[in-house]
Design a protein around this nucleic acid. Structure first.
Lengths: 349, 349
DNA sequence: CGAAGCCCGGAAATCGCTTTCAGAAAGCGC
DNA sequence: GCGCTTTCTGAAAGCGATTTCCGGGCTTCG
């Protein structure tokens, strides 16, 4: 009748309303609903009845404001669409569900400034913990602003944990042994007889890339096998980035007998590139990746890689951040990757 | 010096503090920071200076409480670890970032009651919009409780949109034409000469499964080709579910010449199963999926499927939910899938 | 039987912000 | 210079919960 466009916009049911229909004070209603204190049985029943008769849903903002606590955690990753982050995020969500927490997830799409912006938003939300997933950037300016966002958050009682990120912040960390893993992979590939290697590296400013690259180099160096700079091609951390980098690598003669892609996602692109160039894997060229994301077992040939327990790392990160009691020092959980030799690597020649 | 275990727990910087050091009232400080009203230039500068000198971060809860508005949206899917949901979620996140929104994401891991629980939590957070991603359940009890969660939320001004879910709720919907897509796929496969089909279906209570299955049946029926019930095997919506279902299907003679897996994820498992049973795809058996998740182009052979613009669907859902002005009727955005014939399907025999 | 505790419920302060509501100062035309 | 509008600022009232702080009613013990 008169409502111009039909949006009555009903007001929310408040605790006061519940209290009134139950014939008690808001204080009692609050206590009854939260079980903070003993409340006489009949009152308790009346309050509960009133609450679900009215369909009462407490206002989380009011609760957070009054009690200075809340049950949300923030997660920041580069892109949930990437299977690597999706797997870690999935682990976090599972654990969060068990703990009754709500997760605010955000993707930076690899823009450092977006990471900072999100941290700020999560601070505003007074998130209990902030989880930073994935490689950091090698950039002093960024590190400074990150530090200056994080420090006051920690001082205010916030928890921070990072996953798979070089340890520039002194916070709880779930850290894959990227160097050691890459070195182990290098040794395994040397063991197959390879001596001519190529590497598909991600963006140089990402710390994960640097670690895996140096680890691989060290592994080769142990056997005195060098890795020339022109054998390392940089590409985006995507399937297409891997494709492009692999193509570029093939353009630079002489062709290596074995290629290491610093992430599985890039390896997927590389595999396609090799195929398009008429190369058979592993007969003509061997290929290895890193991470063991779910899909790479399904490729033909299945990809040799360094397996990381991705969902487990997600769970671990949440537990680490929220752990109680809290010691004075931050903790580091080191994850050792396991080299999985599959059919994408063979003996050279 | 005497802090027992070193957690000083510094209090937060409040707007009052900012106002005080800027020498203005909180009201003015608020206006200056939010640009609600004109504020004299010198005051504005002083407030801003004070704010970032103190490192002021507004308390989002207080803001939400006072202004009865906030900038978070909730997303509920079955599992972010699944590439299908990951792709849709990625689209949502991208659009949310553009709009300056924070996303609360949760995974139900396919438990209906968890979906209800999350909606309730999102209601408590007074999320601006709730996005439900993925198939609903064919279960009257669940539908009722869902309805009773959603209705008051909408009445309170909340927005709801669903993606890829049968239209049991009268809310904005991004709806893949599952039936039509599956029918088109059926026609294409018939066109290749197949007459003996098998189907790997997901859990029967999921509406998406039902739709794709009936669509496929209809497509076959147009040419008078039947699909016997024992040719339809049900499995979990996962890679392993696909593997198991495919194995079961092979156990039931006679073997079909072409298999339709209702999702790509299941098709991936089926491909592995066929291989393990010594069958060549497509020479011995053809395989098709649905969704066109990123990885299936990379398989050997690349998978024939019905392509859905997943990230676009995510973006569309957010826009649909938050659209302004708001008509009285809910809107349905129909997505037609595109049949992509790839090498996993060939002519029979 | 009276004093000392114990429980429990209610009044009211509080959390940190936004937003009326007025009032002061400034600008304007005549 | 006077009245009137126009700007801008500050005081104060919420927003919707939680949480002291208090007091009234019982139990319990001396």
């Amino acid at each position: 009748m008169g409502e111009p466009h039909g949006h009555p916009q009903q007001p929310h049911v408040t605790l006061d309303a519940v209290a009134r229909t139950a014939g008690v004070s808001p204080a009692t209603a609050s206590r009854a609903l939260n079980g903070t204190t003993r409340v006489r049985d009949d009152l308790l029943r009346r309050v509960r009845a009133a609450a679900d008769e009215l369909g009462y849903i407490p206002n989380a903002h009011a609760q957070a404001l009054a009690s200075a606590s809340n049950n949300t955690v923030g997660v920041i990753c580069h892109d949930v669409g990437d299977p690597y982050f999706a797997a870690i995020a999935s682990g976090i969500m599972a654990r969060a569900a068990e703990r009754g927490l709500l997760v605010m997830l955000s993707s930076t799409f690899r823009a450092p400034e977006r990471e900072i912006a999100y941290i700020s938003m999560l601070r505003a939300q007074r998130a209990r913990a902030i989880l930073l997933i994935g490689s950091g950037f090698q950039d002093p300016a960024w590190e400074r602003s990150l530090e200056s966002e994080i420090a006051p958050y920690l001082r205010g009682g916030g928890r921070v944990a990072v996953v798979s990120r070089h340890r520039s912040l002194r916070v709880d960390t779930v850290l894959p042994e990227n160097r050691a893993g890459a070195a182990a992979l290098a040794r395994a590939l040397l063991g197959l007889g390879h001596r001519e290697f190529g590497v598909l590296a991600g963006p140089a400013r990402l710390t994960t890339v640097a670690d895996r690259l140096t680890g691989f180099r060290q592994g080769l160096a142990e056997e005195g096998v060098p890795l020339a700079d022109e054998r390392v091609v940089e590409g985006a951390f995507t399937r297409d980035g891997g494709y492009a980098a692999a193509s570029e690598l093939l353009r630079r003669a002489p062709r290596p007998t074995c290629v290491f892609a610093v992430t599985d996602v890039m390896a997927v692109g590389a595999l396609a590139a090799f195929r398009d160039h008429g190369l058979r894997v592993p007969q003509d060229i061997s290929l290895a990746g890193f991470d063991d994301i779910p899909l790479v077992r399904e490729l033909t040939p299945p990809l040799t890689t360094v397996a990381l327990p991705l969902t487990g790392m997600g769970r671990a990160a949440l537990d680490l951040a929220l752990r109680e009691p809290r010691g004075p020092r931050s903790r580091v959980e080191r994850i050792v990757g396991e080299v999985r030799i599959r059919a994408s690597t063979g003996t050279p020649g």
